[in-house]
Simulated scan of single mutants.
Amino acid sequence: MKMLFRAAKRNGFIGDNPAEFVETICEKQADKKRRRPFALEQFRAVLSVADTEWRSMILFGLYTGQRIGDIARLTWANVDLDKGQIRLVTQKTGAVRLIPMAQPLREHIETLPAPDARPDLAPLHPRACALVEKNGKSGTLSNQFADLLALAGLREKKAHRATTGEGRGGRHDYKKLSFHSLRHSAVTFLKEAGTPGAVVQKLIGHESAQISELCTSVGEESLTKAAAAFPML
């Protein structure tokens, strides 16, 4: 109907489009599920209450835009300091991601203690890795991050879904900050820095076939420039 009214106005049959400001169901659902990105002061607030490992997880979340489970599973084999890259295979889609290191992330990685033995198997975040390997999913880590947000005053402290009986079918509050908001924040910061949309999608990763096709021409040099556009915390 909106298309018909738009065409009628364009062709001069009507003066005003009565459907111009009527939202479609898809638009309403998209707005409802639009997650909040972090502001820089909110990043700093949660970093101030995080322990060493969680601080590292948060920095990886912002500067790579990857999901919490994939970050928890990172080992030293995924890190190439010589090339300044992080290489991983995403758990959700099996996609190979080659991510240039933003300079703040590189500096952080260089402060991490080197593993004593078998560096290819040593996780960057041992506690987080042990949790996802034990449970097979990242729900416990997400709950821990929610507790950090509450401690930083960025979210109300509530019982987690696992203890309320809601399970995976429970409703998500997409307006709340979460670890996934780091992914949205990465996109926001890059776009605010003027990074082209196709480069942002290639760097962060996107499951859409249309977006993937759009990004096929994005080269390594463009990705490296995009990583350099991240802000310092």
Rank of each mutant, 00 (worst) to 15 (best):
M1N: 07
M3K: 05
M3I: 01
L4H: 12
L4K: 09
F5I: 04
F5Q: 06
R6Y: 10
A8S: 04
A8Q: 04
G12M: 10
I14W: 09
N17G: 05
I25Y: 14
I25A: 14
C26Y: 11
C26D: 08
E27L: 01
E27M: 05
A30G: 00
D31H: 14
D31W: 13
R34P: 00
R35Q: 10
R36L: 10
A39F: 14
R44W: 02
A45M: 10
A45I: 07
V46K: 05
V46H: 05
V49S: 04
D51W: 14
T52F: 15
E53K: 13
W54E: 14
R55A: 15
R55W: 15
R55N: 15
G61H: 07
G61N: 05
L62M: 10
L62E: 05
Y63S: 03
T64K: 13
G65M: 12
G65C: 11
I68S: 15
D70H: 05
A72S: 03
L74T: 00
T75M: 08
W76T: 00
A77Q: 03
L81A: 09
G84T: 09
G84F: 14
I86W: 12
V89S: 07
T90I: 01
T90F: 03
Q91T: 07
K92F: 03
G94T: 00
V96L: 13
V96P: 00
P100G: 14
P100L: 15
M101T: 02
A102D: 02
Q103I: 08
E110L: 15
A117R: 03
A117Q: 01
A117E: 03
P119H: 14
D120L: 10
L121I: 06
P123S: 12
H125P: 00
R127G: 12
C129K: 11
E133A: 12
K134Q: 15
N135W: 14
K137H: 15
S142Y: 07
S142C: 11
N143M: 03
F145H: 03
L149W: 14
A150F: 10
A152H: 13
A152F: 14
G153W: 08
R155C: 02
K157D: 08
K157Q: 12
K157E: 10
K158W: 11
A159T: 01
T163R: 15
G165P: 01
E166T: 05
G170T: 00
R171F: 01
D173T: 03
K175F: 13
K176L: 15
L177H: 01
S178L: 03
S178Q: 05
S181V: 04
S181P: 00
S181Q: 10
R183N: 02
V187E: 06
V187Y: 04
V187R: 06
G194M: 09
G194I: 02
T195F: 12
P196W: 07
G197C: 03
V199K: 04
Q201C: 12
G205P: 00
A209E: 10
E213F: 14
L214P: 00
C215S: 09
T216F: 11
T216K: 12
T216H: 13
T216Y: 11
S217R: 09
G219D: 07
G219I: 02
E220M: 08
S222M: 08
K225G: 04
A226G: 06
A226F: 05
A228D: 13
F230W: 03
F230R: 02
P231D: 08
M232S: 13
